[in-house]
């Protein structure tokens, strides 16, 4: 409905103009109409590969995974329809519940650190550093993001080894005894968060750099004339005017953190116990280790709904906290 109305309006608007300018030549009118028609086809032809790709590799898998959530399927045998059984089993599974709880805690802590660190460094780099050094740090902070998360995690696993890791070796100079980083629940959670934040804060950092650059210098000058000093400028100028960027950075950081997998999988395999097991890890384990593709899809559907709900809540709250220039 909504798409036909504007098209009709456009047609109405276009008709008199054509009639006026090309009144004597009626064939001209039909040429324009057929030209528009062929342009429309041309547009569809150019869009077709993208639409086809999106349809085949995004839309179809999404629909298939939702449908699969209502089946029991182990790849090898034929799928069996089980209704909502997968959802019921998933909700009752203590490992799934713990993994979702871990994921929520991880999101809160990791995103807070990621955004806080990115913002602090962005302000520092943007305001306190000369241009050449600014360029260097922009690249340096973004660099971890282009590394493979699995490779980084393997590397970090060596660094944080209790007996032979470099981290404990350095700590030993300060008289600190060897810390069991990866073999205790607290230590392993801390390392997973640390590695994740280190690797991902660069993206938020770049967003903040862009946001800071877009704040007009006159606003700061006006604030200075009003007697605002450094900290007050940050509180009353920078943070409010950066709020659209903060919203974007937080939405992206939360969505990404809710899907954390590589770091805990490689560093700790979800352990000790279930202390670092995350929602996506449980999806992977259900599907590819236990061959319960239906349950894996059910967990995936639940996770998607949670991500959608959180994102919607963020945008709703943004009406109160985000200021546009």
């Amino acid at each position: 409905m909504s798409t036909t109305t504007p098209r009709r309006d456009r047609a109405k608007q276009a008709k008199p103009a054509t009639t006026q300018t090309l009144k004597p030549a009626t064939p001209g009118t039909s040429q324009t109409a057929s030209g528009r028609h062929s342009q429309r086809w041309l547009a569809w032809i150019f869009l077709a590969p993208t639409i086809l790709g999106m349809g085949l590799f995004t839309l179809v898998p999404i629909v298939a995974s939702v449908v699969l959530a209502f089946f029991r399927w182990d790849i090898i045998s034929a799928p069996t329809f089980v209704g909502f059984d997968n959802f019921a089993e998933v909700v009752q599974d203590p490992t799934v519940r713990v993994s979702f709880l871990n994921t929520i805690v991880f999101v809160i802590v990791a995103v807070a650190f990621q955004l806080g660190l990115a913002l602090a460094l962005a302000v520092m780099v943007q305001e306190k550093m000369p241009a050449w050094l600014r360029t260097f740090f922009r690249s340096a902070f973004f660099f971890p993001l282009i590394l493979s998360a699995a490779s980084v995690s393997i590397f970090m696993r060596y660094l944080f080894n209790e007996q032979f890791g470099v981290v404990n070796w350095f700590l030993s100079f300060a008289g600190i005894p060897a810390v069991p980083w990866l073999t205790t629940p607290g230590g392993s959670a801390a390392v997973v968060i640390l590695v994740y934040v280190w690797q991902n804060f660069g993206f938020s950092f770049l967003l903040f750099i862009g946001g800071l650059a877009s704040i007009p210098a006159e606003t700061y000058e006006a604030a200075s004339l009003d007697g605002a000093t450094g900290w007050r400028k940050h509180t009353y100028v920078t943070l409010p005017l950066l709020s659209p960027t903060t919203l974007l950075a937080s939405v992206m950081a939360i969505i990404s953190a809710l899907q954390v997998f590589d770091q805990p999988y490689v560093l700790t395999r979800g352990g000790p116990g279930d202390s670092t097991r995350t929602a996506v890890m449980v999806i992977f384990e259900s599907a590819f280790q236990r061959l319960e593709f239906g349950q894996a899809s059910a967990i995936g559907v639940i996770l998607t709904l949670i991500i959608m709900a959180i994102t919607a809540a963020q945008f709703r709250l943004s009406k109160r906290f985000v200021f546009y220039q």
Binding site: P185, G271, P272, D274
Partner: peptide
């Protein structure tokens, strides 16, 4: 294996 491994460290 997962059930075993996840509980050994603890």
């Amino acid at each position: 294996e997962t059930a075993l491994m996840k509980n050994v460290s603890l």
